[in-house]
Amino acid sequence: TPNNTLTVTTTTLFSPVFAGTFDTEFDITWGDGRGKVLNNGGLLTLSLDRASGSGFQTKKEYLFGKIDMQLKLVPGNSAGTVTAYYLKSKGDTWDEIDFEFLGNLTGDPYTMHTNVYTQGKGDREQQFHLWFDPTADFHTYSVLWNPHHIVFMVDDIPVRKFKNLQHIGVPYPKLQPMRLYSSLWNADQWATRGGLVKTDWSKAPFTASYRNFRADACVSSGGKSSCPAGSTRWFSQRLDLTAEDKMKVVQRKYMVYNYCTDTKRFPQGAPKECRH
Rank of each mutant, 00 (worst) to 15 (best):
S89K: 15
T118R: 11
T83Q: 13
R265D: 14
P109E: 04
S221I: 02
K36A: 13
A208L: 10
N39M: 10
P171H: 04
V8P: 02
P173L: 10
T232L: 09
V82D: 02
Y86T: 01
F213E: 05
H129K: 09
E244A: 09
H129P: 01
A215T: 03
D200H: 07
K272G: 07
T10G: 06
W185D: 05
F26R: 00
G223F: 12
G41Q: 03
D240P: 05
G65C: 04
L102M: 05
F152L: 07
A270W: 07
M255F: 02
Q126A: 15
R233P: 03
T9Y: 08
T1K: 14
R211L: 04
S209R: 14
R275K: 14
S78P: 12
Y141P: 02
Y259F: 14
K60A: 12
L73V: 04
R193Q: 15
T93L: 13
F22K: 02
Q166A: 12
L43R: 12
A243W: 00
E273L: 03
E96V: 01
A187R: 05
V8K: 13
Q268G: 14
P271I: 01
G194D: 10
G223L: 08
K161M: 04
P2D: 13
M178Y: 00
F206Q: 06
R252A: 15
K59E: 12
K203R: 15
F138G: 04
E96L: 01
F152G: 06
K253I: 11
V17E: 12
G91K: 09
A229Y: 13
P271K: 02
V151G: 04
F64L: 08
T58I: 10
A84P: 11
G91H: 03
F56C: 06
V151Y: 01
M178C: 05
S52G: 10
V159S: 04
L184F: 08
C218L: 00
T261M: 08
G223N: 10
F206T: 09
